[in-house]
Amino acid sequence: MSIAVGDFEGRSVPSASPAPGVIVGGPEVLRKRIEYGTILVSLLLGSLVGVYWLTQNSLTWIEVTAFLIGYCVINVGVGMALHRYFTHKAFETNAVVRFILGMFGAFAVQGSIIDWVADHRRHHAHTDDCGDTHSPHVDEHCHDTSTWRGLLHAHFTWLFDDTTTDLNVYGKDLTQDRMLVFFHRTRWLWAILSVVVLPGLFGYAFGGVEHMWGAIWVGGFLRTFIFLNFVLAVNSIGHTFGSERFEQDNHSKNNLVLALLTFGDGWHNNHHRFPRNAFAGLAWWEIDVNGYLIVALEKLGLAWKVVRVPKAQLP
């Protein structure tokens, strides 16, 4: 049963739209800029405090553990949940696991899950061409940007350009999904839990007030900001530097460093060749932690209809 979602009503595509599914200007773009600006400024300021805290205090296992646990959770939240499950439907699962995946995705503090998925669908529909959400080779108005300016656009400035994704084209089903609407409406609550409350409780439980603040600044803000940049690097570096296993009409690359940092999503050329495949790593040596986790869920009976590329299609 679908429900009306006021946050998404009234979106329309102006005549100046550079490509189908792209909205130029208007209140939707303003909301995008405010949301991403709030996220980036908050994470950046908190990270700077975290760096200062590190210069004034000894780093202990408490801060390191808070950082690593949080990093793993949001890494799975983006790569396995937002990317492979919600965007590409690479596998199916039950309602409980689905909610946990949504929660992990919300913990990554990358804005609305609905907008994230719709933006990524648009990216695949127009990869490195007019209408791409965040290409280093073409900007929001279809101008060639295969320079350092293009890298900045793909990594950062697309968050504040004057376009946004039309949910009527790329996300109509998302706005009718009760669970995703719930996470959309409560996204700031999950962000505060991820960055402040849970790391703070962890630090306080094991080290008192001093380590509570250390866990918040290092294991909350700094962790989230660093990982956000790794995800953004898949847009910029992942379409500029690396190798190409498959020749395609885009510039997607396989990049080992990005793959390690993002639990597999750095095998980006592989992914663009087989976007619905549950596994970005296609060779035994292409480490793909999120893919391994999907296999684990499958073996436990918690994931099924896992999409796999037939071996005959692989080189």
Rank of each mutant, 00 (worst) to 15 (best):
K32F: 07
L101H: 01
V51M: 10
E28V: 14
T65L: 14
I39G: 08
F67K: 01
L82I: 14
M80G: 12
F86R: 07
A90L: 10
T65M: 14
H126D: 11
F67L: 08
E35N: 14
S112G: 04
P27N: 01
V29A: 12
C72E: 12
F91Q: 09
A106D: 02
T55C: 02
D129N: 13
V73R: 01
A125E: 13
I113W: 00
L43I: 01
A108D: 00
V73C: 14
I69Y: 06
F91M: 02
R84K: 12
V29D: 11
T55W: 04
L48M: 12
S42K: 04
F67Y: 13
V76W: 05
A125P: 03
T127A: 15
G70M: 08
V109L: 06
L82D: 02
V41L: 14
F99Y: 06
K32Y: 09
T65V: 13
R84V: 07
G70W: 03
I39E: 03
M80V: 03
V109C: 01
I34R: 05
H123V: 08
D129Y: 05
W116L: 08
G79Y: 09
E28G: 13
L48D: 00
E63T: 09
D119T: 09
S42D: 01
T60I: 08
W116N: 14
I69R: 04
V24F: 08
G79R: 10
D128W: 07
R121V: 11
W53F: 12
L44F: 14
A106H: 01
S47C: 09
T38R: 07
W61K: 08
T127P: 10
L40F: 14
I100E: 00
E28W: 15
A90W: 02
P27T: 00
V41S: 11
L48C: 03
E35W: 02
Y36R: 04
S58Q: 12
Y71T: 06
L59K: 05
A106Q: 00
G77C: 04
Y71A: 12
T55I: 07
A66K: 08
T93K: 03
W116P: 15
H83S: 12
L44R: 03
G102I: 03
D115C: 11
G79C: 14
F104P: 09
Y36H: 14
V109W: 00
W61I: 05
I69S: 08
H120I: 11
R98F: 04
I100K: 05
F86C: 06
R31F: 06
Q110F: 02
T93R: 04
R122G: 07
L48A: 01
N57R: 11
G25Y: 03
D128S: 11
L59G: 12
L45W: 00
V29F: 07
